[in-house]
């Protein structure tokens, strides 16, 4: 029986799981398919509901795992095969320098999520106009100080790909309401002259301090919240015309905007079904990894010895991903000792 645990994914959930296992005396192999740790968290500028420095927070956590001798970090590495059962999984890892075989006692899947590319949303002119960007691109613009300057109007569009049976997913991506409020505040802070408009269907602020955070966007930062899903974004003479209904008034409205930010859905990580098939575990109808029981055993996959953590199970905010990382670590420790 092996005492090692394989953690798949070097985002915040995987990093936390690896840390907790190491802190309790276990050995970890942490694999990450990209060339650096940090996952989606590392792509952000600020956290919410408290505007913390995301890059500083994540590098602090990355440093912790990098300086822990019992955690072996393999970047640019993917899992290519997995056999065996709890306590004795034989896995094949493909690294830049070739493949290697390992025997591990438990596996934690923390493969993260993917921001949906809203290419199907042609009504929003995404891909046609450079002034229509996704939230992820907005984060990058903010990090590089490229947010529009001067007297500009910025429109934030909720539920792009979420709550949409026709072109996206039926589920709610949970965090878009909060991060769009964060973006609107970031916009106001970067350019106090700008005007921000957030188009929403329902505001879902399910977390400590979230409601207060979104209210602060409205009350302190004068972000205009308009209830209605944006119908169309048209290009007109270098501007964007955003059409929607103000559904609380029952009236169609048009905003002449300079930048449109699409809060694209959180979708399962690319290749999640292939990974699940390789591991022999179940996914849900969307491709998220399926837990056996969502209330009391949220991190148990359908196969003993393989545990789940973070947003590869469902749309999730950072705090929950960290909590789930810790929980899966304790489950892994329980089967490897």
């Amino acid at each position: 029986m092996s005492k090692k645990t394989l953690v798949i994914g070097g985002g915040i959930a995987g990093i936390t799981a690896a840390q907790k296992i190491a802190q309790n005396g276990g050995d970890v192999i942490l694999i990450e398919k990209e060339d650096a740790l940090g996952g989606n968290f590392a792509k952000l500028t600020y956290t919410f509901p408290v505007l913390g420095d995301a890059k500083a927070l994540v590098s602090q956590e990355v440093q912790k795992v990098q300086t822990t001798p019992s955690i072996e970090i393999l970047t640019n590495t993917t899992l290519t095969a997995c056999q065996g059962s709890v306590g004795d999984f034989s896995v094949e890892l493909k690294t830049l320098s070739g493949t290697r075989q390992e025997i591990v006692g438990a596996i934690i899947v923390a493969a993260g999520f993917h921001y949906m590319e809203p290419t199907a949303y042609t009504e929003y002119s995404y891909g046609r106009s450079p002034k229509v960007v996704t939230s992820l691109e907005f984060e990058k613009m903010a990090a590089e100080n490229r947010l529009p300057q001067g007297n500009v109007r910025v429109v934030f569009v909720h539920c792009v790909g979420s709550r949409d049976k026709a072109k996206g997913y039926v589920y709610c991506s949970k965090i878009c309401c909060s991060y769009s409020a964060k973006h609107a505040i970031m916009m106001k802070k970067a350019n106090p002259q700008s005007k921000s408009y957030v188009f929403y269907i329902d505001i879902r602020a399910l977390g400590k301090g979230y409601e207060e955070f979104i209210r602060s966007a409205m009350e302190e930062h004068n972000v205009r919240y308009i209830r209605g899903r944006v119908a169309k974004v048209l290009e007109s003479e270098g501007k964007l015309l955003v059409r929607a209904e103000d559904s609380l008034m029952g009236n169609p409205v048009e905003v002449e905007a300079d930048l449109v930010v699409l809060a694209s859905a959180m979708e399962p990580p690319v290749g999640s079904r292939d990974l699940a098939a390789m591991l022999g575990i179940a996914t849900d109808e969307y491709g998220f990894f399926q837990d056996v029981e969502s209330n009391v055993r949220p991190c148990h996959s359908s196969k003993p010895g393989i545990f789940l953590a973070g947003s590869c199970t469902q749309p999730m905010e950072i705090a929950s991903a960290v909590a789930m990382g810790g929980l899966s670590a304790s489950e892994a420790l329980a089967v490897t000792r």
């Binding site: 009504e123 539920c159 709550r163 269907i201 209830r227 209605g228 899903r229 944006v230 119908a231 169309k232 059409r243 929607a244 209904e245 103000d246 559904s247 029952g250 169609p252 409205v253």
Partner: peptide, 20 residues
């Protein structure tokens, strides 16, 4: 969902006071 995407793009809603 009562999201209003229909009314937002509706040509009739754009030119009448009450159609929705």
């Amino acid at each position: 969902l009562q999201c209003g995407k229909c009314t937002g793009q509706c040509p009739a809603a754009a030119v009448t006071p009450g159609y929705n």
